[in-house]
Structure formats: C-alpha cells, structure tokens
Simulated assay, not measured.
Amino acid sequence: MTAPPSEVTATATATGTAPLLRTHGLTKHFPIRRGLLGRAVGRVRAVDGVDLTVPAGRTVALVGESGCGKSTLGRCLMRVFEPTSGEISYRRTDGTVIDLAKLDERALKPYRSEIRLVFQDPFASLNPRMTLLQIIGEPLRVNLGLGAAETEERVAELLRRVGLRPEYLRRYPNAFSGGQRQRVGIARALALAPRMVVADEAVSALDVSVRAQILNLLKDLQDESDLTYLFISHDLGVVEYMADEIAVMYVGKVVETGATDELYGQPLHPYTEALLSAVPEPDPGARRRERVVLRGEVADASNVPQGCPFHPRCFYARDRCRTEVPALREIAPGRTSACHFAGELELKGCRA
C-alpha cells in the first residue's frame, strides 16, 4: 500500500474542456511464478505503457481482440488491480487533478463513488442471496449512511430510472432475465451519482434485442446526468453506435485513437483495418467488403515479439517493423497511430 501523494498534482486550466481522466505510461504486469518457492520466471505484460484520455461527458470505447488487455486496463482505472507503474490523472469537481494511482486505500475511498463499474456478466455480478433492495442499497448505506426508509426510497427511484418497476425491490436476481439483471447492475453503478462509468463488455452476454435496449438506456442516462463512459467492447458494431472516440488496443498497448467517424472511415493502423473489415454491412444490397483475415493468433503478452508486436500478423510489415517498436504518435489532428508507416499505407475503412 502506497502513501497518499501531496494534495494536488496539477491544476486543470480549463475545467469545462479538460479531460476527466487521463493515463500516462500506465502499466500492469502479472508475474509468472513456478517451482516450490513460487519464484518469478517471467511476466505477463497485460497493460504496457498506455496513454489514454477520457474527455468529460463523452464516451470513449476501448476495442480489440480478447486478451489484448482491455478489461485489465479498466480494472486498473478502478484500482481493482494495482498498477505496476504509471499515472491515472483524475480531475476533481473543483478542477484540480490528482493521481489516483498513488492513493492508498483510505485516500481512494471518496473517489470510488465517482467512478463506477458495470460488469460483463449480469448473472455472476449479482449476489443470488440478496434482494434488489440489498444489492442496490448497499452502496447507499456504506457510503452515505442512509437509513432503511431513505434507502428504500432511493432504490425505488433508481429502479424506475433504469426501466424496472419499484415493486421488484424485494425480489431476488433469479426472478429476472439477463437484460433485467443488467439494468440492476446499471442501477447499482448509478446509486452514488458517479461522474464516470466503466462499462466492461456490458452488453456482450445479452440477446441482440435486449442489447439494443441497454445501449439506448446507457445513452439516455448519459444525456440526463452528463455521464462519462469508458466503454470496453470487442463488438465494433455496438461501438460505432455508442462511442464518440475510440482507442484500439493490441497486446497491452494502444495502437490507434481517433473520433469514431474518422476512424471507421479511414483507419491508420493495419490492425484497425482488420478489425473494421469484420464489421457487418448494414445495407444487405451493398457490395461486400473484402475481409482481412489475420494470420495466427494474438501475440503472447508474456513473450511479445521484437519490434512492432503486430508485425507477425501484418500484411504490410517491413524490415523496420521487425526490429523497432513504433511509438504512438499524432498523424493528424485528433488522430494517433503506433505504426511506422501510418499515413503512407492505403488502408480501407468500413464507412464512406
């Protein structure tokens, strides 16, 4: 446990436009232990030096294949996982900025109510032995010290807000469908009026029709409460609907960022091009795009290839890619890419 830092690490110059949250060099490595004494023989680079900016009131999507580090990054931001190194700069309501990565558990507690998490699995994330009143009301009792009557009133209002009937508050999770359970999870996340919500694959376990309802609910709640979302997903069709900006991850690193429309229209990294080629075409009569089928599997985060981590699967790889790690750099205003030849390659998007 680390000691709390000095009160303020920086000051936002323009509170209205400054990022709500920003990471710099954020890293999370898991040791690989073997033998009777559990000696560390290697490490898994789950998150490896990520710089990410989340503007206030916007939705930033984190996308990539399974195993690329998306969920680990989200849990580092929540301090569910302790970062190995790096900064998590968070802008407080008074405009000052503090590094959440350096706070100990006691100093971190006030901020846990401001950044909340919606889990992927609506069945595993709710305690089957607790009623909705207990599940949603627990944060209210622990953090705000509300009494029984006031807790029940607040829980009933939260249920209404997410489209559930207040009469359900004494029922158990097994009485509800997957979509209804996810609404309960969202109500629990909103209980303490957070400023930011990390939605970790929040709709991937749901049927398509239910998925649309939850996505619309998240958008409505964002409009009502000026919420900021970090939306973690591997479904680029869903991301296109939800996100204002996108960050693409590969083997623990962000390899491209940009506004959604620009990134879908003109990717700047070969990995992004491959992901976009798999997005379904909304017009059945439209000409089918050529699918980019990548070779092999996602690189092993415990044994990352030398040079660009993506080069063994990249159709555009050159000698430089095999020896030199590309830096994430700005290619155009608001667009970054970690490709040596970004801006030179003619990559295909999935939207005009």
Results as ranks from 00 to 15, higher is better:
Ala3Gln: 14
Pro5His: 11
Gly16Val: 11
His29Cys: 00
Pro31His: 03
Pro31Trp: 02
Ile32Gly: 00
Arg34Phe: 02
Gly35Tyr: 06
Leu37Thr: 06
Arg39Lys: 15
Val41Ala: 01
Asp48Met: 04
Gly49Arg: 13
Leu52Glu: 06
Thr53His: 10
Thr59Met: 01
Ala61His: 02
Ala61Arg: 01
Leu62Thr: 10
Ser66Gln: 04
Ser66Tyr: 03
Cys68Gly: 04
Gly69Glu: 03
Ser71Asp: 07
Arg75Trp: 09
Arg75Asn: 11
Met78Ser: 05
Arg79Tyr: 07
Val80Cys: 07
Glu82Val: 09
Pro83Asn: 13
Pro83Gln: 12
Gly86Ala: 03
Gly86Asp: 02
Glu87Phe: 04
Ser89Arg: 12
Arg91Leu: 10
Arg92Ser: 02
Thr93Cys: 04
Thr96Val: 12
Ile98Lys: 10
Leu100Thr: 06
Lys102Phe: 10
Leu103Lys: 09
Leu108Trp: 09
Ile115Glu: 02
Phe119Gly: 02
Phe123Asn: 03
Leu126Met: 03
Arg129Gly: 03
Gln134His: 10
Ile135Cys: 01
Ile136Ser: 08
Ile136Gln: 01
Glu138Gly: 02
Val142Ala: 15
Ala148Ser: 15
Thr151Ile: 10
Leu159Ala: 09
Arg160Lys: 14
Val162Ala: 11
Leu164Glu: 10
Glu167Thr: 14
Arg170Cys: 13
Pro173Ser: 01
Gln182Phe: 11
Arg183Met: 13
Val184Gly: 07
Ile186Cys: 08
Arg188Ser: 13
Ala189Glu: 05
Leu190Asn: 06
Leu192Asn: 05
Ala193Cys: 08
Val203Ala: 06
Val203Phe: 05
Val203Tyr: 05
Ser204Phe: 07
Ser204Ala: 11
Val210Cys: 08
Val210Ile: 15
Arg211Ala: 13
Gln213Tyr: 05
Asn216Pro: 06
Leu218His: 02
Lys219Gly: 12
Leu221His: 10
Leu221Lys: 07
Leu221Val: 07
Ser225His: 15
Asp226Met: 08
Leu227Phe: 08
Tyr229Trp: 06
Phe231Gln: 02
Ile232Arg: 04
His234Ala: 04
Val239Phe: 06
Glu240Trp: 08
Tyr241Arg: 12
Glu245Gly: 07
Ile246Phe: 07
Val248Leu: 01
Val255Gly: 05
Glu256Ile: 08
Asp261Asn: 10
Glu262Val: 14
Glu262Tyr: 08
Gly265Pro: 13
Pro267Thr: 14
Pro270Thr: 09
Thr272Trp: 09
Glu273His: 09
Ala274Val: 11
Val279Ala: 06
Asp283Val: 07
Arg288Cys: 02
Glu290Gly: 15
Glu290Ala: 15
Val292Gly: 00
Val293Glu: 11
Arg295Met: 08
Gly296Tyr: 03
Gly296Val: 04
Gly296Ser: 01
Gly307Ala: 08
Gly307Phe: 02
Arg313Ala: 00
Arg318Thr: 11
Cys321Thr: 09
Thr323Ser: 15
Glu324His: 09
Leu328Arg: 06
Thr336Ser: 12
Ala338Thr: 05
Phe341Ile: 09
Lys348Ala: 15
Arg351Trp: 12
